[in-house]
Computed example of a mutant assay.
Amino acid sequence: MNICMKTKYSRTIIESVEKKFIKDEIPFLEVGDSIQIGVLIKEGNKERVQTSEGVIISRNNHNLNTTITIRKVLQNIGVERVYLIHSPRIINIKIIKKAKVRKAKLYYLRSRSGKATRLKQKFN
């Protein structure tokens, strides 16, 4: 068995195992969407859902390891957080509004503040 056949065989095994853990109820998320995400937080022996809002500035697609980076501004300080979409800790994702964007990554929002960070809304 050559190396190419081994990698194809191992890739199919990995994909079959990952299929069990991929969530189906996730909405279609795009860069520029304003979303509200609920994350399960454990404090001591209690669990609660903590929601956070923000704009998706980047998205990395890797099947089960798909991540999104969310940016929000709190007290004039920009906060970014990376979420693993298919994590069991993610309870719900709700799209608040969509925006027209022309780039795959919105890293330019980091250097701007105030009205300069507004994105043009997309209507369906």
Score class of each variant (00 low, 15 high):
E30N: 09
I70V: 15
V31H: 02
S10E: 03
N65W: 09
I93T: 11
I56K: 01
I56F: 00
I68D: 01
H86I: 10
I96N: 05
T12I: 08
T117F: 04
G32P: 05
I57M: 07
V17A: 08
N45W: 10
K97C: 09
G32M: 05
T67G: 01
T117E: 13
K115V: 05
A116D: 12
I35V: 15
G44M: 13
S113P: 00
A99P: 04
L84P: 02
T12S: 14
D33A: 03
S87Y: 11
K8G: 01
K42I: 13
E15S: 08
E15I: 02
Y107L: 09
A104H: 12
N76W: 01
T67C: 03
I41W: 06
S58R: 15
L106D: 05
L74W: 00
R118D: 05
T69N: 07
T69S: 06
Y9F: 10
L64G: 01
V39E: 13
K23V: 04
I13A: 09
I90Y: 11
I13L: 10
L106V: 01
T51A: 13
I77L: 02
L119W: 04
S52K: 11
Q50L: 14
K120T: 07
F28V: 07
L29W: 03
T12V: 07
T66F: 00
R89H: 13
K94T: 15
V17M: 06
Y83K: 14
K20C: 04
H62E: 09
R71G: 09
R89K: 15
Q36E: 14
L84C: 09
V31S: 04
I68P: 01
V101G: 02
V49M: 12
R81Y: 07
V101C: 12
R102D: 10
I3S: 08
I85C: 03
I26T: 13
V55I: 15
V55Q: 04
